[in-house]
Design a protein around this nucleic acid. Structure first.
Lengths: 212, 212
DNA sequence: CGTGTTCTTGATGTTGATCAACAAGCGTGG
DNA sequence: CCACGCTTGTTGATCAACATCAAGAACACG
């Protein structure tokens, strides 16, 4: 069921219009780049799921975003990575030289516009995330994540690509709270959880109501 | 003490390289634009402080960012505003037609690059905000905001342009918690609070340690 | 099958929210 | 200049949500 470069409506993004320096596979859990690395490539995700985020010295982790097939990641303002990217599942990426892309953008206004559009929609997702973390309860956050995942597949039933720990670190919660919230939804009949990594949304309305 | 177009090192951003459609003043508390408006202008803040954020239907509010003199705001991916912008203090802004700016960017690679740089640094600040809201305690959040405000003036003593409610809505806390945390810092000798709107950082080290 | 990992569930603890009262600033009008 | 009311901020008491700690269950993989 490989569908490279298929663009989901909710996340439609142009592929990077530059020849890839290379195409690489990463195993689940592998690091793609780390905080402090020099940021001379950007990535286009062909298949799989990637998480980007940061780690505090005491071990607390915050995931900024999950990235799915067709999306791009690894853009930085400066020369040095401020986030770490890891493969959540088995992953294949196209790697593009940042320099090649910025050169092209300097010559081609349309490419520059796409690049701009890409980052600004990333900014908007980050703002949604801020709202979620700043002002929403655990229930609302978990519901929000489930809806986000459902929207990108377009299906009410889908596999969770990430662990409970990943969900917790994205939502600013603990695994226990995520787990309890999911079984709460289960008991209220909002979702089914046939396996630990597969969700079906039974009452989308109710879940949406939780997110307003 | 007006200093239009002075760029603080920590927030150095190019002015929008387009003739302003107009220059407008807003009184403190006035709305500059609102969620749902059509997004056909961008703004350059000449003087004062602006907050951008969102409101949930039940009244919960989340401030995405504070903007200071020299900074730009009001960029949107789509045609419709997703955030509201309000004057925190008395404010003067240059208003630029979005269309004029994007036309210029399409012709001029350097302008396009600046625009890109602007949004990507906005994205990085939003990611810092996510980390703050997702994984930091109330103390750490308040310390982080104080340091952010100190950095942009370059002084250890500064006026707080915003109310406790604004601070709370930026930090994902309540006014009571912000207030208590500040008096906590006061009692530990980390700050002085000669008036309710003026802060002096007495022990910057300790505050930085709180943010790691 | 065992063994290690991930997930769930339960009991308890802590942080920050909520509710309530009071204090401090601030503008207006006497 | 003070009295007044109104807004904003502080402080206290209590509560609730989520974290933490601990144990067990389910699952994955050799």
């Amino acid at each position: 069921m490989l569908s490279p470069l298929r663009f989901e409506p909710a996340f439609a993004q142009p592929a990077l219009p530059v020849a890839a320096a290379s195409v690489i596979r990463y195993a689940a859990g592998e690091e793609i780049f780390a905080e402090g690395d020099s940021a001379d490539h950007v990535y286009e995700l062909v298949e799989g799921t990637v998480r980007t985020g940061r780690l505090l010295r005491d071990g607390r982790r915050q995931i900024d975003a999950f990235h799915f097939a067709g999306e791009t990641f690894g853009f930085e303002a400066g020369e040095v990575r401020r986030t770490t990217a890891e493969a959540v599942s088995e992953v294949t990426v196209r790697i593009v030289r940042r320099r090649a892309l910025s050169d092209l953008a300097a010559r081609n206004g349309e490419v520059a516009r796409q690049l701009y559009q890409l980052t600004i929609s990333g900014l908007q997702r980050s703002q949604d995330h801020v709202l979620m973390l700043g002002r929403r309860s655990a229930c609302e956050r978990v519901a929000g994540l489930l809806l986000l995942l459902a929207d990108r597949t377009g299906e009410a039933a889908f596999d969770l690509p990430m662990s409970r720990q990943d969900m917790a670190d994205y939502l600013g919660l603990t695994i226990e709270t995520v787990s309890r919230t999911l079984t709460g939804f289960l008991q209220e009949g909002l979702i089914a959880l046939p396996t630990v990594r597969h969700v079906e949304l039974l009452d989308r309305e109710a879940l949406e109501a939780l997110c307003e």
